[in-house]
C-alpha cells in the first residue's frame, strides 16, 4: 500500500511541475494565480499522502488544513488586488464600458 501512496505522490508532484509551466509562461497575471491555486490544491493532497506514508496522519492533517486555508486566502487576496487595477492585459478595453457579451 505504501508503494501506491508513493506512486500517487510522485504523479501529483510531476503534475505540479507541469502546472509550474503555466506559472512561468502564463500570458496574464491571472493565469499565474490560477496555476498557483492549482499547485496549492495538489500540495494539500500531497501533504496528506505524506502523512499516510509516514504513518502520522493526525500530525500532517493540521499542516494540510493550514496550507489549504492560507492558499485560499492568498488566492482571494491576489484576485482582489488585481481587480482594483483596471487593466492587466496591455491594450485591452475595459469590458464594463461596452457591456458584457
Amino acid at each position: 500500500m505504501d508503494t501506491f501512496f508513493i506512486t500517487t505522490g510522485v504523479i501529483l508532484g510531476l503534475l505540479t511541475l507541469v502546472c509550474l509551466y503555466r506559472v512561468v509562461a502564463g500570458p496574464t497575471v491571472l493565469d499565474r494565480i490560477i496555476a498557483v491555486g492549482a499547485i496549492g490544491n495538489k500540495t494539500t493532497a500531497i501533504l496528506l499522502l505524506m502523512g499516510m506514508i509516514f504513518g502520522r496522519v493526525e500530525m500532517f492533517v493540521d499542516i494540510s488544513i493550514s496550507y489549504a486555508l492560507l492558499n485560499f486566502i492568498a488566492t482571494l487576496g491576489a484576485a482582489k488586488y488585481f481587480r482594483v487595477r483596471k487593466s492587466i492585459v496591455p491594450g485591452s478595453k475595459y469590458l464594463k464600458e461596452k457591456g458584457i457579451s
Binding site: 484576485a79 488585481f82 481587480r83 483596471k86 487593466s87 458584457i100
Partner: peptide
C-alpha cells in the same frame, strides 16, 4: 466550499480588469 469561491473571485477579477 472554497474552490468554487476562489474560481469565481478570479473570474470576476478578470472580467473587471478587462480581459476579453
Amino acid at each position: 466550499l472554497a474552490n468554487p469561491t476562489a474560481t469565481h473571485a478570479i473570474t470576476k477579477g478578470g472580467l473587471d480588469a478587462g480581459v476579453v
